[in-house]
Amino acid sequence: MVLAESTNHAIADPGRVFLEEVIARTGPSCRLDMCIQCGTCGGSCPSADDMDHTPRTLFAMIRAGMREQVLRSNTPWMCVSCYLCTVRCPQDVRITDVMYTLKNMAVASHAYPDSTAPDFSRAFIRNVETFGRSFEVGLTAQHYLRHYLTRLPSMAPMGISMLRSGRMGLTPPRRIRGMRGLKRILARAKALEAAS
């Protein structure tokens, strides 16, 4: 009886389920299940001060099945993809890639409460999906009007200098010729991802 109960428990272990989901979405070589909780990642991370949990803590929370709290955490969004943790991790966990996966999952489940970062990514990608190229001025203007109105005055001199030195253009980029093909590629990729 006792044995059967504990086996049942192992199958339904929410930590295991969540951990395996994160691994499957990151790719099997991410080795997240090999984490030994040494803390090298958090100690190396340039953004750790601004994270609500260090990467190490977050990985412990994944194992504990704290799905909601993990996906609400600002940690992945504070990650600047510098790969310092990744090259230092004694277990070769691909931490940066795990951070990307956690962002993907937070966006998909609308769990992360602050929309600044996901909105920036979406705005960036909207330009890419329209022109095939990024469009710095359009992106910055759109993003600041929405999230950083108060920052505009201190930014204005910089914008003007960038325009004057020819490092920023007001006109959108020329659309790439293969835009239709690119749209089909992305649509297919999204469909494949949704199906998996």
């Binding site: 990514s121 960036f124 991802e193």
Partner: peptide, 13 residues
């Protein structure tokens, strides 16, 4: 940016 939103479309791009 794209890698943070969705994996396969980001790599396909």
């Amino acid at each position: 940016e794209y890698l943070g939103l969705s994996r396969l479309p980001a790599y396909a791009l």
